[in-house]
């Protein structure tokens, strides 16, 4: 199908964008950064087109549904949200150094979707449990939240890179100097986490409403539900530590990384645990 062909090209385009961002960071030449932005924009445009085509194709097959219904489609949408959010931030903050850390996650998600033999790219009809109006809202909000947490994670990595500069200032490479100042990073981490936290909360709530209609209970302590709560608690702890105990900088970066590990377990790890939520 044409959409999967486009999507496998998008994987390649995102890799190219990542490579350009990396070259920009190492060489310090902004031309590479501009190329990287152009590549990421082309990738996002192609990916959006492919998602719309996939949506249309599903209707032509008579099993129409938004392309958010299985692991393949969720990985594609995950990567789409990451790149869309990143490009928005690049435009707002006028800084490209985040790209080196965020875009590879989008690329890996696409590569996993395209290459893993366990991930089927076929458009499948919806089983009865998924035939709900809440499917789209639930998946959409959850993945926008995951994307924001991914950005926070990448910013957390940058905080540690920036820390290297302080340890031996004379040998500091140009690429570390390109990373924004620590307080800007801290503010960006905070804003990304707030965005992710709000979306995750809405995601959990829409999921609960759906579960109320589908499974008869708004909360069943299914592993995915439980892990989404754990993720929510990790970020709740992070926000409280910042507000009340004044955590900044490295501590927030560590929390952003722990939070992201929890997101990955919620998203992919729980498929290895038995439960109602596992992708088939």
């Amino acid at each position: 199908m044409i959409n999967t062909v486009i999507l496998s090209w998008v994987t390649f385009i995102y890799f190219t964008a990542f490579a350009f961002y990396l070259v920009r960071m190492v060489s310090g030449k902004e031309i590479w950064g501009r190329l990287a932005t152009v590549a990421a924009l082309i990738g996002l445009f192609a990916q959006t087109t492919a998602l719309i085509l996939r949506w249309i194709t599903s209707y032509q097959m008579g099993i129409g549904h938004a392309p958010l219904s299985n692991l393949y489609e969720s990985l594609i949408f995950f990567s789409w949200s990451i790149v869309a959010l990143y490009l928005l931030m690049e435009w707002r903050t006028k800084s490209r150094s985040l790209g080196t850390f965020v875009v590879p996650v989008a690329f890996l998600s696409m590569a996993f979707a395209s290459l893993s033999p366990n991930v089927s790219s076929r458009i499948q009809p919806l089983i009865p449990a998924l035939q709900s109006n809440w499917l789209t809202t639930h998946v959409l909000t959850c993945f926008l939240g995951y994307a924001a947490f991914t950005v926070a994670f990448a910013l957390g990595l940058m905080v540690f890179m920036k820390g290297l500069e302080r340890r031996n200032p004379e040998s500091s490479r140009s690429f570390i100097q390109l990373i924004p100042e620590a307080d800007i990073l801290d503010e960006l981490i905070y804003q990304s986490v707030v965005l992710g936290f709000v979306f995750l909360t809405i995601g959990i709530m829409t999921g609960s409403i759906w579960a109320h209609y589908a499974w008869g209970s708004y909360w069943s302590w299914d592993p995915k539900e439980t892990w989404s709560l754990i993720t929510w608690l990790v970020y709740a702890i992070m926000l409280h530590a910042r507000y009340v105990r004044g955590w900044r900088g490295k501590r927030m970066a560590v929390m952003a990384i722990i939070g992201f590990v929890s997101v990955l377990i919620t998203y992919l790890g729980v498929n290895y645990l038995p439960g109602l939520h596992s992708y088939q």
């Binding site: 592993p223 439980t226 754990i230 608690l233 990790v234 709740a236 702890i237 409280h240 530590a241 729980v270």
Partner: peptide, 18 residues
């Protein structure tokens, strides 16, 4: 105390999925 409780609840939940 709030942070300690949130950590304990998280840890118990992790145990509950394992």
């Amino acid at each position: 105390l709030a942070i300690v409780l949130l950590i304990l609840i998280s840890a118990a939940s992790i145990l509950g999925t394992l």
